[in-house]
Amino acid sequence: MASLELGQAIQGEALMDSYSRGNPSARRIKRVRWGRGTALFLAALYFIVPFYAAMQFCLQDVNGHFTLQTFTQIAQAPGFYSALWLSTQLAVATMAIVLILMVPTMIYVHLRMPRFRRVMEVITILPIVIPPIVLIVGVDGVTPLWLKSSQWLLALIYVVLAMPYVYRSLDAGLGAIDLKTLVEAARSLGSGWVSIIWRVLIPNLRSALLSASVLTLALVFGEFTIASLDGWTTIPVWIYLTPTTNPRINTLVAMMALLGTALVLMLIVSFDRKSHLRRS
């Protein structure tokens, strides 16, 4: 009996094998799979090798032994905590301002001025096209004195810089829902605009809002030029300004910023997926 089953299995396998050998579409699928795997592997190498090299550099002493000493050195380095605090404050403020500005605007444009979407797309690309030096000089020329000395000016500039990313995330999110019908359904039930945005639209735009927030966070934690020109010591500026007697510190902070952003992104995505699964 067992030998019969084994015989059938072998026969089946042989059939499958001959099928995949003889069938051009099966061969094509196999080729595509290999191609994908190779591309993914090469891309992973591109990211992992430098990251691994940098981490190895940070986590070993001059004799090549593994050590966590660099972490304690970072903690003791002057100005690190204040730079981290400033970057965090700016990130939170930028996220809040850009979302408060962009969410109602985008909803309005999608609902009432769909033709204006093209114009808005072009406008939001401008911060990418205009060099930061031009931007800061321009901003400096029109900023009132009381705001010039405030760190919140930097947050306002970051709002402009974050617009292209926030616009695209929200545009995709709004395009994925039947905005007009949802809004009209809520209105017919007696809902005002604040309630519509808060109770109906934001929960359905969560993924778009999360990706917009993560992109803004990454932008604020990575932006150097404007912060430096404006005289604020954010994390990237701190990395640059810290004396290079121990380059491991600078490298490790840069790696931590990268890892931190990736971690936040993963946490948000997994939270989003979990809550989606819970609802399903």
């Binding site: 829902i177 039947d178 019908t181 949802l182 009209e184 359904a185 809520a186 209105r187 017919s188 039930l189 007696g190 809902s191 005002g192 109770r199 109906v200 929960p203 359905n204 609802r279």
Partner: peptide, 28 residues
């Protein structure tokens, strides 16, 4: 529209995706 006190059923499915059937009905 929100003050007209009229119930409306739309051509396309207009339920709020983030709410259960009960929450949808209870929304108003």
């Amino acid at each position: 529209a929100q003050k007209r006190d009229m119930g409306m059923v739309f051509q396309s499915y207009s339920l709020f995706p983030n709410m259960s059937a009960r929450d949808n009905v209870a929304f108003g």
